[in-house]
Design a protein around this nucleic acid. Structure first.
Lengths: 354, 354
DNA sequence: CTGAAAGCGCTTACAG
DNA sequence: CTGAAAGCGCTTACAG
């Protein structure tokens, strides 16, 4: 089905090299892997001869079969790789993971829970461990993974596996409480992936929200609602929109619809479930000549760099995604206890909602 | 040295399953890999029994040794993974690569040319092919790669290997020419990684630039210079600064230094070698109450989303990094001829330099 | 369509 | 410190 990556010309193996040198295969192996197991002189000879003959070291495929370990850790991403690689939060998580793996001699294999159908099944199970990021449409990918391999879930839960989270509900509560301290005339909420069936626009009565515990965005909504109630605002009276994908392109039409409402209907405070959403509001508001924060106040969630290295700076709540990645990686490598972890977030007061 | 990832409990193998079912190992293998080689009925029985006994399919380590292919393609990044994952251009490249690999049943292994010393040598050679991105401090990593494996270079050159580039010189010329059509009083250039020894600030006489052909930024400078000369401006009279890493944090102090020059010395046009640099100029200029483009005009290079989904939009030249990744991936998979490619760029007229 | 057997390239006790 | 040998878990001609 797939064309071979290349026709491989004759290749020299460890055995060939041993024969060539008149030593045992064990000595050649030791020359590369256990310097203390042979004389420096012999090792020198083996290594230089290897270089001369174009032998670049033991084959990793054979080594991993023999030792049972590949030194590869897989990250399974709920979204497509294309999306994840361009998302600031996912990128930071990956950076945190990569940092720890690198220091401990492991490498990072990227997999997606939304892979193409032609995806060779089982190619994932080469990895020694798995970090699974976010709720995926189907847990089928996880079935290909041998049950004994370590696995940790990030930002969602897998039955009987450790997980790493942030304190979504208190974090949302904190930012909403700050925003509501200045009473808004018309607050609004822009959710992220919160409906059972796809909805990119206003959430009307016909939509059902995902169940609590299924998604972190449900916890974020709970935090918003708690703050609203505390201010004597009935959450049921606050209009909600939903965004299907955390990108400018997908956010823009929904936000344009909101901002283009008549002055007396347009929200003057928008609580957004991500910085990407909030930043899109800022950009489209500026394009329309709406003043931030005078005409419309905006809050985000995540604390990504793009929201801080600009003007006006985003008011948001910062989660340390890099640290989330580090912790997940340490758990997988057995350097940290495999337990459920919840990281704290930090309220950032920017200019979009002073 | 490194602790094992986990103590693996007893595990069932293909052989065990075959014995259990009273069939040959070939049939079990075929049930998973070649459905046409056995009766649907037997296949059904094997698959269901496998599930019941917790056999999740053939082990990828053994399979890859046996077949000689891992279906893994490695991307070797010149920068650290932490940097690369958070850089828009590198992320787009990776996204383009991942897109093609995914469709063709391959997965993506991330490696860095600046790995930690403890990095297990040779663990890279599990990959079937290598995409090498950017000039790295040392090509040592590449030595561990068997010579027969396909390899393609992106944004730099490796002896006798195909490469993928964009038209850096003409692209820079185009954007500079556009900018210089409105004659500046005091043009300036902000370079990226262009000096032999590290320099984060003004490039003075004591610094030597990297040789032409060594780095793409040298080609970009050539484009700027050609446009300057064409306008009768001697490039030697145009002040140049250098940035060591394409991040806000590293750019900011250099740019602050430039913007804080007295009014009669501050450049009124800055030609920047990346959008990240240009965006940092915009942000810091806004913070200082400088008007863009009235007080200072700014051009970038790359065409990243962040520069376009904001106001003022960046004037820049767009390179299709996603496509660069797609092409490199197709070459590696043997789906496109292994030859040198140069992609065209597109001038984008934004508001930072109308 | 099925089964017996070779062998992919290593690492690692083990005996010397 | 060195060498002979087993075996990691598969896939694939090949014979039936």
């Amino acid at each position: 089905m797939e064309p071979p990556v290349s026709a491989v010309p004759p290749r020299i193996t460890l055995k060939d090299l041993a024969r060539e040198l008149g030593v045992s295969t064990a000595s050649v192996s030791n020359a590369f892997n256990r310097p203390d197991q042979l004389s420096p002189k012999l090792r020198e000879r083996i290594l230089s001869e290897a270089q001369r003959l174009g032998y670049s070291g033991p084959d990793a495929k054979a080594r991993s079969l023999r030792t049972g370990r590949s030194r590869i850790i897989a990250v399974v991403l709920a979204e497509t790789l294309t999306y994840s690689l361009n998302d600031a939060v996912a990128s930071e998580l990956l950076a945190g993971i990569a940092e720890v793996l690198d220091v401990h001699g492991h490498t990072l294999l990227l997999l997606s829970g939304r892979q193409h159908v032609s995806q060779a099944p089982g190619s994932a199970n080469i990895a020694d461990g798995f970090i699974v990021y976010g709720l995926m449409p189907s847990l089928k990918v996880l079935n290909d993974i041998p049950a004994q391999r370590p696995m940790v879930a990030v930002d969602f839960n897998i039955q009987s596996r450790p997980s790493v989270h942030v304190d979504n509900e208190p974090a949302s509560y904190a930012v909403a409480r700050h925003a509501l301290a200045t009473p808004p005339k018309r607050p609004g909420i822009i959710n992220l992936r919160l409906t059972e069936s796809p909805c990119n626009g206003k959430i009307t009565a016909e939509y059902t929200l995902l169940a609590a515990g299924q998604t972190i965005t449900r916890s974020r909504l709970a935090g918003f609602h708690r703050a609203l109630e505390e201010q004597g605002i009935d959450p049921a009276t606050v209009p909600m929109w939903n965004i299907e994908e955390n990108t400018f392109e997908v956010c823009a039409p929904v936000i344009a619809e909101i901002l283009d409402l008549p002055d007396d209907q347009r929200p003057d405070l928008l609580l957004c479930m991500s910085d990407r959403i909030a930043l899109t509001v800022v950009t489209l508001a500026e394009q329309r000549g709406l003043r931030v924060p005078q005409d419309i106040r905006i809050t985000g969630f995540d604390g990504i760099a793009e929201g801080q290295y600009r003007s006006p700076r985003l008011t948001t709540v910062r989660q340390d995604s890099v640290e989330k990645g580090r912790i997940a990686a340490r758990m997988i490598l057995g350097l940290a206890p495999r337990e459920n972890r919840q990281l704290l977030t930090e309220l950032i007061l920017g200019e979009t909602c002073p």
